Amino acid sequence: MPAGTITAEAAGSWKLGDLTVNRLGLGAMRLTGSAAFDLGTPSGRDRSLTVLRRALELGVNHIDTAAFYFSSLRSANELINRALAPYPDDLVIVTKVGPSRDASGQWLPWPAPEQLRGQVEENLRQLGRDHLDVVNLRMNAPGPVAEHFGALADLRDAGLIRHLGLSNVTAEHLAEARAIAPVVCVQNRYGLDARREGSDALLRACGEQGIAFVPFFAIAGEGRESGATAPEDARVRAVADAHDASPAQVRLAWTLRQGPHVLAIPGTGNPDHLAANVAAGALRLTAEELALLGAPAAEG
């Protein structure tokens, strides 16, 4: 499916609280290198800046990032600040707190609730903002969310955060958080072949409650941080061929068809891939194709 002049508006829009975003956004992790979590070789700085600026030209107004997205030479937040500040009024930058890494890239212990303020201030400093549009509490440890989410709710009341969300959570986490403060988005691993137990139910529950559901690894699937490395499913290839599209575009189109509240944040450091990802917002899969993609893989 050629990118042409298709923009992110083709995917439709949704509201994160009072902030309207196009449903096709950009994940910033890969701007720092192909393996940002492992301090992989950084992508070219100029190319990363080009991707960010081109994203806005293509109508992307939702960027997902985190202070722990960095490689040995690049910080996603710093790149966003450098490329896009002063920020357009309609740009929504969503970040996340909870996990953190030291300067060498080593993961630090799960923070105490009172340590989240420092993480929020780190994002503010790196992005050059006086408040953060949306902050997701990313759960990397088992247990309840109340104390940590409550700490973020206090920072929201103090004016440092506009809206709150959750990442890598269960339905129980969502209910617990909503008893403390409004939740505008849930960001979980989800995709055509990357569903976890209960994921479909949580996606539906978010829709019923007016909460955005934001999958990560929608293209990469089991490849996760390494990207889509496994051989492509024959069904995905067949649908892609029928639309003169790429398998990645089909996966994004399938993701967006899971509900009007479902957003997509594919990450890339490649301007051509960016344009192709945005164009996927205009790809309309038929009911027969959706049924084919949703059917169990054939044995043998």
Rank of each mutant, 00 (worst) to 15 (best):
H243F: 04
A175L: 13
H243T: 10
V169P: 02
D157C: 04
N168H: 09
A146L: 04
A177V: 06
P142Y: 02
V186Q: 02
A234R: 12
A177C: 07
V145C: 01
V186P: 12
A218C: 09
G210Q: 03
F216T: 01
S226Y: 10
A242E: 12
G198H: 04
A218T: 08
A158F: 03
A158D: 12
A212H: 00
N188P: 10
L174S: 00
P231K: 10
L192D: 07
G159E: 07
A234W: 08
R189N: 09
D200H: 01
G221E: 07
F216Y: 15
V214G: 07
S167I: 03
S199F: 02
Q187I: 06
A220V: 09
F213V: 07
R156C: 04
L192S: 13
V183G: 08
P215C: 11
G210L: 03
D241A: 15
P182T: 10
A240L: 14
G165H: 02
R204T: 12
F213Q: 02
L166A: 03
A194S: 11
A151V: 07
I180R: 00
I180N: 06
L166D: 01
Q209R: 14
I180T: 08
C206K: 05
G165K: 06
G165E: 03
Y190S: 04
A179I: 09
P215T: 08
L152G: 04
G207P: 08
D157Q: 12
A238K: 13
H243W: 05
P144H: 09
L152N: 05
I180F: 03
E172H: 05
R224N: 13
V214Q: 13
E208K: 07
A238I: 09
A201M: 06
A153C: 07
R204H: 10
G223W: 05
P182D: 02
E172W: 03
L160F: 08
P142A: 03
P231H: 08
L164E: 06
A146K: 07
V236S: 14
G207K: 04
T229H: 11
A245L: 13
G227M: 10
G150Q: 08
V214F: 04
D244R: 14
V239W: 13
V236T: 15
A234T: 15
A146G: 10
P182M: 00
H173Q: 00
A205I: 01
E172K: 11
A146P: 00
E197I: 12
R237G: 08
